[in-house]
Amino acid sequence: MSTKKMVSLKDKVQQVKGNLVSDMGGEKVMLSIENGKYYNLGEIGGDIWELISEPIEIDQIVSKLMDHYEVTREECETEVTSFLAQLKKENLIQLKGDF
């Protein structure tokens, strides 16, 4: 069975436009127009969502988050790529080559 990640640190990612996003008590919630689902991104997920409003490499996202949060690079890289893979699975982001 393959354990290959869907995204890697050198990938560029960007939001898929057209979703309705709102702040709710410091957390970001979003309605996907495409699939009609509601999502809660949480606080840090909301920060990541703002960072990917324009195309950006994932390792740049990690560096920016490390400026604001108490976290090791290894932990941040692992958890951010996992989170972005979830977003990709739901078609909420696009990777370089898709745009």
Binding site: Y38, N40, G42, I44, D67, Y69, E79, F83, Q86
Partner: peptide, 20 residues
């Protein structure tokens, strides 16, 4: 001062629509 890190997660919310 840096903020406390928590693993980012994507939560899918189940919204029930009531037909009236």
């Amino acid at each position: 001062m840096k903020k406390h890190w928590q693993k980012p997660t994507l939560e899918v919310l189940e919204i029930t629509m009531t037909m009236a």
